[in-house]
């Protein structure tokens, strides 16, 4: 399993938070791909985190290698406009999980090939946390 661990942003002044995207670097065609967004507080102090929606909204964006959109978890989703305020103790993490069924936004199975995956966590608007893009290969 390929794991991307990327420091992406700072939500509260002086408090670094990590948003990590965890997924395998390849999957067999037709097999659902487990994808986890992990928000963690590696710092020594509690960090206040603002999260959108109830349940918390998080997005997974999958494109082809050339950037062509393939699938987006929140595409046309209706999200409640509530703002959740959570305190993340040092060393603790919140995880959001999804399984991509290897279908595009129209419900069509995607072909074998190379894809790009990005995780997005909407926070106090207009802010959002976004991971760096990770490669995913769909094998025959």
């Amino acid at each position: 399993m390929g794991i991307a661990l990327i420091l992406v942003s700072t939500l509260a002044a002086g408090v670094p938070l990590r948003l990590d995207l965890v997924l395998p670097d390849h999957a067999r065609r037709g097999k659902a791909v487990p994808i986890t967004l992990r928000l963690s507080n590696p710092g020594p102090e509690p960090a206040t985190v603002y999260l959108q929606g109830r349940p918390t909204a998080f997005d997974i964006v999958i494109t082809r290698a050339d950037g062509t959109p393939v699938w987006r978890r929140l595409d046309r989703a209706v999200i409640s406009s509530i703002l959740q305020v959570r305190v993340l103790p040092p060393g603790q993490a919140i995880e959001f999980t999804e399984r991509w069924s290897q279908q595009d936004d129209r419900g069509q199975a995607v072909p074998v090939g190379e894809y790009r995956v990005t995780g997005v966590l909407p926070t106090d608007p207009p802010s959002e946390l976004r991971t760096q893009t990770v490669r995913l290969r769909i094998l025959p």
Binding site: P69, L74, R76, I79, S81, V120
Partner: peptide, 13 residues
């Protein structure tokens, strides 16, 4: 009263 927003394909609302 408002309660939600719809996410566009580009991620905006």
């Amino acid at each position: 009263i408002l309660w939600g927003g719809i996410v566009n394909p580009n991620g905006s609302s």
